[in-house]
Design a protein around this nucleic acid. Structure first.
Length: 420
DNA sequence: ACCTGTTTAATTTCAA
DNA sequence: TTGAAATTAAACAGGT
């Protein structure tokens, strides 16, 4: 089928296309949402720049759903932009500094075209390849996380995750069978994702997927391609179980979870106790602890609250109650977005479905679903933090534009270790 | 039947 | 180079 992979872009893997991830031409405007917190301050050291994902695809000016983003503030962008790079981007988070809780994933949007990038793209790169869409510098885990984060209810069905990804990244409109299988694998295999059952009365295709409350910011290191360590549920922060890594996700740990959720939780301090657990049909608690937890109040979506590191967000409202939906509620309300039906085939060409919240919206990412623009969203032009990237580049002397293949290679090499 | 989830396993890629 | 994370494939079980 259709799936034939093109060696070129599609898999970055093997070949070396150099890297595989996007090439030079694509500009995704990223919407990074990092919170403001992230101001791009210092990228200390590492600079990295990577390539910019500029997607020049079609450019639909105008309409971008996401488009909103561009318009806004750009301040940031410009800042960085100094460099012209339109892209410049790295995921915001790359910014070293703030390790955002998961609230800040960079979500970019494919805004095709400059528009988004705002920064006018100048500098047509010499070589714009035809990679129409290169592979985004995010791992599947990152993508899933971003998708979930940006949803108002903080949980999405598998299909919604697929759609979000495809809408944002043209790259993933290809070889669907391949990456979707990987997505499924990632969801099941990684403890950071939990399955939230649908309410009985709301039948539908699959369950909802949410982030494990304790997963925290898995990308604190700023690297969206690879986490330093795989999140394993069951591990308690202080107890001695640190490692966990060795163990396979099999079962045991998972099982233990149940308790975990309650007990440990780094909860946010201020957040009120979790709402009553709506027992969906919990009856079937599957063996898998995970799921359980899901319904367990802990992770209620409401919990944006549960941000693992509330402090980070502190400024933000922590009381998101209004949004806090209970799982079941959430279920009732449709996931959030789109009005479409489950199987509704989205047309590739319009990303608009997501008008609700562009991925860029910081809000979304944060925890606030869509209040649209409440604050200056930081918009970065490129994938992520343009600013930083740009700056860095500048400092480094690299051209942003230069994009090396390894977009991230140099980039985030910084493990944020403890800055604290 | 097709979609969703799980799981095993091989391989690739990255960061230390 | 190495260990671990990520990707890809694929078999298989359940649901709808």
């Amino acid at each position: 089928m259709e799936g034939h992979e093109h060696p070129d872009w599609s898999t970055g893997t093997g070949t070396g296309t150099g890297g595989g991830y996007y090439g030079e031409s694509e500009c995704y405007s990223a919407g990074v949402n990092m919170n403001s917190y992230m101001s791009a301050p210092a990228m200390t050291g590492t600079g990295h720049m990577n390539a910019h994902y500029v997607n020049q695809v079609g450019v639909s000016h105008g309409s971008m759903p996401a488009g909103g983003l561009c318009q806004s503030p750009g301040a940031v962008v410009q800042a960085g932009a100094g460099i012209t790079s339109l892209g410049a981007g790295l995921p915001p988070s790359m910014s070293p500094i703030s390790p955002p809780p998961y609230g800040n994933m960079p979500v970019m949007s494919p805004v095709y075209g400059q528009a988004a990038c705002g920064i006018r793209s100048r500098e047509p790169k010499p070589y714009r390849r035809s990679y129409t869409h290169a592979k985004p510098p995010y791992s599947y885990i990152s993508l899933i996380t971003m998708a979930i984060q940006q949803s108002g209810s903080k949980m999405l069905t598998l299909n919604e995750i697929y759609q979000w990804i495809m809408d944002l990244f043209p790259f993933y409109r290809q070889n669907q069978q391949r990456w979707q299988n990987s997505i499924r694998h990632s969801l099941s295999f990684n403890d950071c994702f939990i399955k939230v059952p649908r309410l009985p009365d709301k039948p539908g295709k699959g369950s909802f997927w949410a982030l494990h409350p304790d997963s925290g910011n898995m990308f604190e290191n700023g690297c969206y391609l690879r986490r330093q360590k795989r999140f394993k549920s069951g591990r308690k922060p202080d107890t001695g179980d640190k490692e966990a890594a060795g163990g396979k996700p099999g079962s045991s740990e998972v099982g233990s979870v149940s308790s975990t959720s309650d007990s440990d939780s780094p909860h946010s301090s201020s957040s009120p106790p979790p709402p009553p657990p709506p027992p969906p049909a919990a009856s079937e608690v599957k063996a898998a602890g995970v799921e359980l937890r899901a319904h367990r109040a802990d992770l209620l979506p409401s919990s944006p609250v549960r941000m693992p590191s509330p402090h980070l967000f502190s400024h933000h409202h922590q009381h998101h109650h209004h949004h806090a939906l209970l799982l079941h509620e959430a279920a009732h309300l449709k996931p959030d977005h789109y009005p479409h039906h489950p199987h509704h085939p989205h047309h590739p060409h319009h990303p608009h479905h997501y008008s609700f919240n562009h991925p860029f919206s910081i809000n979304n990412l944060m925890s606030e679903p869509q209040h649209h623009k409440l604050d200056p969203v930081v918009q970065y032009g490129g994938y992520g933090c343009p600013v930083s990237g740009a700056l860095v580049a500048a400092k480094s002397g690299l051209d942003p534009a230069h994009t090396d293949t390894g977009y991230y290679r140099g980039v985030y090499t910084r493990p944020i270790m403890n800055s604290s």
